[in-house]
């Protein structure tokens, strides 16, 4: 069995205890709720997009260390990037989570995930993948709504 140290890496615990970009954004930012039906976690993601750039993201709600740290690191990874780049980051993250999706592009592999690489260990604990991807799926929904 993989050890817990693969899961609860220092960076993850740091983002869990000190989450970045927590909170809400006023309208006209888009807000979308995300649920993990397995464990009952609920988050709300706020997205401010203008001129095809993700200007700000905030996340509120509750969740386990994996879902909360993933959300925190995600906000850092996407703020300031173009929507196209953000979609590529999402694809790259999902492929790290062993989630097969259409549309993975050859250049995605070159994208650096930075701190998010610490979540790699989650793959060894398949039930936790849903925790790690909760905020990401919510972000996809928000981007889709933003058009």
């Amino acid at each position: 069995m993989p050890g817990l140290e693969d899961l609860y890496r220092e960076i993850i615990l740091d983002h869990y205890k000190n989450p970045r970009n927590r909170g809400e954004l006023p309208e006209p930012a888009i807000s979308v709720e995300g649920h993990n039906p397995l464990c009952g976690d609920e988050i709300t993601l706020y997205l401010d997009v203008a001129d095809d750039v993700v200007r700000d993201v905030k996340v509120s709600g509750q969740g386990c260390s994996i879902s909360q740290s993933s959300a925190s690191m995600m906000t850092q990874a996407v703020i300031g990037r173009s929507v196209t780049e953000v979609r590529a980051v999402i694809r790259r993250f999902k492929s790290m989570m062993a989630i097969e999706e259409d549309g993975l592009e050859a250049t995605d592999a070159e994208i650096s995930l930075g701190d998010l690489e610490a979540l790699q260990g989650v793959v060894k604990f398949p039930v936790r993948i849903k925790c790690a991807t909760l905020s990401w799926n919510t972000l996809i929904q928000a981007l889709d709504e933003a058009g």
């Binding site: 069995m1 817990l4 899961l7 609860y8 397995l38 464990c39 009952g40 976690d41 509750q62 969740g63 386990c64 260390s65 994996i66 604990f125 936790r128 925790c131």
Partner: peptide, 20 residues
């Protein structure tokens, strides 16, 4: 968080339910 608790408990083969 219950999910984290049950993950750690599983390390010592303690099987509990975490959730709603």
């Amino acid at each position: 968080h219950p999910h984290d608790l049950s993950q750690v408990l599983d390390e010592s083969n303690v099987c509990v339910r975490a959730g709603h």
